[in-house]
Computed example of a mutant assay.
Amino acid sequence: MSNADVFRKHDPHAHPDFFRAEAAGLAWLAEAGMPVARVRSVGEHHIELDRVPDTRATAPAARAFGAALARMHDAGAAGFGAAPDGYDGQLFIGRRPMSRTVHESWGAFYIAERVLPFLRIAVDAGSVTAGQRADIERACELVTGGAFDDDEPPARLHGDLWNGNVLWSPGGVVLIDPAAHGGHRETDLAMLALFGCPHLAEIVAGYESVHPLRTGWQDRVPLHQLHPLAVHAAGYGAGYGRELHRAALVTLELGGNT
Rank of each mutant, 00 (worst) to 15 (best):
G66R: 14
E104P: 00
R185D: 01
V52T: 10
G94W: 05
R20K: 15
F92M: 07
R96M: 14
H45A: 15
F19Q: 02
N163C: 14
G94L: 04
D150P: 10
F80N: 11
A201R: 09
H73A: 09
D17K: 14
R40H: 12
W106V: 11
G79M: 02
W168G: 01
H227T: 06
A70Q: 03
A179L: 08
W106M: 10
A238F: 01
A230V: 02
H13F: 14
P154R: 12
A234K: 11
A147L: 07
G255S: 02
A27S: 13
V36D: 00
L189Y: 01
L254H: 07
G171F: 01
A4P: 00
G196D: 07
H232N: 15
L226I: 13
E208R: 15
G66K: 09
V36E: 00
A21W: 05
G94F: 04
G25V: 10
G25Q: 04
V166H: 06
L252M: 00
R71T: 10
R242E: 13
D17A: 09
R114H: 12
D149M: 03
A233E: 03
K9A: 10
G196V: 08
L175C: 12
V52A: 12
P154Q: 08
A24W: 13
Y207G: 00
R51I: 08
G182V: 03
N163M: 03
P212M: 05
A59W: 10
I136Q: 01
L223T: 06
G66S: 13
G79Y: 04
A62S: 09
A67I: 07
A234C: 05
Y236G: 05
L244V: 09
A61P: 11
A139T: 00
D149C: 01
H73N: 04
P178H: 09
R114K: 10
D50T: 08
D85N: 08
A234L: 08
L142K: 05
F65H: 05
P12I: 04
L249W: 00
L229T: 08
V210L: 00
